[in-house]
Design a binder for these strands. Structure first.
Length: 260
DNA sequence: ATGGCACTGTTTCAGTGA
């Protein structure tokens, strides 16, 4: 079962790039972030025609997450629990069932948090506290589960071309990385690093300053697996090449294959 | 990070992102 995460930076602007990639990569499930669309405006029929079931959790202009799945999507929930006042669309869950296992999938768009300090950074850290609580529940369920998406977290210096440039940024500040590590340390497996120890492997390159051409990137899109899901992990890769195409997102897909 | 870009909105620049 091939499951990908992809921050598309706007569904309207990414129709061609996303459609091309789906055709080539043939993921069973694609967790999308930054659809920047309300649910009613999401071009669901286009993806249904490609054989995908579509579930969205959108909002106007910003944020927004979605799941495309060739397998049926069951028990869909929207929103990260823990704050009824939170209007930002950043979390969606569903269960998919393969030949041998059911897997709970959480698609997430973790807040950027800049500038620091300030209310946006406070929101990021508070959001991560709520995510910690949901992560505990997933582990307690003892089922194969995954939290995947744009974490807006550079876990370690090796995950940036120029870590010094990010020292005081909300993506790399010690407080951010500590909050991420606290979730990981509950017992999750970060799929990419488990299988790819080499440096200079990134999932985001800024549109500015020729970042892609200089491989001046950061690795901020992650897939965290519960132990039961980690036992099924057979592969994890970054589809970096599509960053060099026409009208790309600034992120690229990261995917896992699970023997599920 | 000196700075360079891109997306949405009902636009003609501002807010946001990373």
């Amino acid at each position: 079962m091939k499951i990908a995460t992809f921050n598309i930076n706007g569904i309207k602007a990414r129709m061609n790039a996303l459609t091309d990639w789906l055709g080539e990569a043939q993921p069973d499930v694609a967790l999308l972030q930054e659809i920047k669309s309300v649910d009613e405006a999401f071009p669901r029929e286009h993806f249904e025609d490609l054989g995908y079931n579509v579930e969205t959790h959108g909002q106007k202009s910003f944020n927004g997450v979605a799941i495309l799945s060739k397998l049926p999507l069951e028990d869909v929930t929207r929103g990260l629990p823990g704050d009824d006042e939170d209007e930002q669309a950043r979390w969606i869950e569903a269960t998919v069932t393969g030949d041998t296992h059911s897997v709970r999938l959480c698609g997430l768009y973790l807040p950027n948090g800049n500038p620091t300090p300030g209310p946006k950074y406070d929101y990021k850290l508070a959001w991560m506290d709520r995510m910690f609580a949901r992560a505990q529940e997933l582990l307690a369920s003892e089922m194969p589960a995954m939290m995947a998406g744009d974490y807006n977290i550079i876990p370690q210096a090796v995950d940036a071309k120029r870590p010094d440039a990010w020292r005081d940024d909300a993506l790399f500040k010690l407080e951010s990385r500590t909050a991420y590590r606290r979730i990981l340390n509950l017992g999750f497996t970060e799929a990419f690093r488990t299988r790819n120890p080499a440096p200079e492997q990134f999932s985001f390159w800024d549109y500015q300053a020729g970042a892609w051409n200089r491989n001046d990137g950061i690795r901020i899109d992650h897939l965290l697996l519960t132990p039961q899901a980690a036992d099924l992990l057979t592969e994890c890769k970054i589809d970096a090449e599509i960053r060099g195409r026409e009208k790309p997102s600034d992120h690229v897909p990261v995917w896992v294959d699970l023997a599920a």
